[in-house]
């Protein structure tokens, strides 16, 4: 026993090293798995506070660019106003609706919340963006994030009371369902961690006609994003002879280095859609398993 204590005492530094290394690796790997590590929530509040102060200063110097984006957004919204649209005739027609469902009732599908970016990086392979809105402002996981001009930015992955973390499109684990604006064919948008100026679009069949510069938008099938918002434009077409699918490089519409004000978009039906999807898979898998 005495020898053991002596042994430990002699190599105490090395054992301290082993212990601390285990702790830090445990932090690292539990973070990757669950997106939440020890003290991350508390640390978020502290780093968020500091980041916010810094960003306040930085925003002062970048107002011009942001004003331009907001002006473009306002312009597009003004064009949607009912005042700008006149109907060609004023005659009315009474039609008896035979549908059993009241199709005139509308419901809200997406809810937009404004947020400011307080920290942002593009240099890593896993880039996160920090926003100054958290769970007390109604932000929750899986909400989509759009830039001030409406282009797709990322998905919220973690929230603390006053701040939230967004997994940027520039993250090697990010996958977004997107489609070509012209034809509506859809594929998956990914990133290979190499060039932050180019995203990858996979899964588009070669039968679809594609030209350089074709706009890519968020697909109707995305659970998180509202459909039709711009993602980028086709910058390079790689035709792989071995498969029937294109590999496209897409130039992102959002400038990830200049994010300032963004929208956090909540899909109000997200929980229902996700549950249905999960339960369908479970049901089919269970049926398969019991028949074997």
């Amino acid at each position: 026993m005495r020898n053991v204590i002596l042994f430990i005492g002699r190599y105490l530094t090395f054992f301290t090293f082993l212990f601390l290394q285990t702790v830090s690796l445990w932090f690292l790997f539990s973070f990757n798995k669950f997106h939440q590590a020890m003290f991350l929530q508390t640390a978020n509040e502290v780093t968020g506070g500091i980041n916010k102060r810094y960003k306040n200063l930085e925003n002062f110097f970048l107002q011009g660019e942001e004003n331009r984006r907001l002006h473009l957004m306002n312009d597009s919204l003004l064009n949607l106003l009912l005042q700008q649209i006149t109907s060609p005739d004023t005659t009315r027609q009474l039609v008896t609706d035979t549908l059993l469902i009241d199709s005139s009732r509308q419901y809200r599908r997406y809810y937009f919340r404004p947020a400011g970016v307080v920290y942002n990086s593009t240099n890593s392979e896993k880039n996160y963006i920090q926003l100054d809105r958290g769970s007390i402002h109604g932000v929750a996981e899986n909400m989509a994030v759009l830039n001030a001009d409406g282009s797709a930015v990322g998905i919220v992955v973690h929230v603390s009371p006053r701040f939230s973390q967004v997994m940027s499109l520039l993250h090697v684990r990010q996958k977004v369902n997107v489609s070509l604006q012209k034809t509506g064919d859809f594929g998956t948008l990914e990133w290979d961690g190499k060039d932050p100026g180019l995203l990858l679009l996979k899964g588009l069949p070669k039968s679809v006609p594609i030209k350089l510069g074709d706009p890519v938008v968020v697909s109707r099938y995305s659970f998180n994003f509202p459909p039709g918002y711009p993602v980028g434009t086709v910058a390079e077409i790689i035709s792989d002879k071995r498969t029937n699918f294109y590999l496209l490089k897409v130039k992102p519409a959002a400038r990830f280095n200049h994010l300032q004000h963004v929208f956090v978009v909540e899909n109000l039906q997200f929980a229902e859609q996700a549950t249905l999807d999960r339960e369908t898979r479970k049901k089919i898998d269970d049926a398969k398993r019991s028949s074997q």
Binding site: Q21, S24, W26, F27, L28, M38, N51, Q130, Q165
Partner: peptide
């Protein structure tokens, strides 16, 4: 550094 860069444990290790 890690808590600022959102990678708990990476730089620490």
């Amino acid at each position: 550094v890690d808590y600022f860069l959102q990678s708990p444990g990476l730089h620490a290790s």
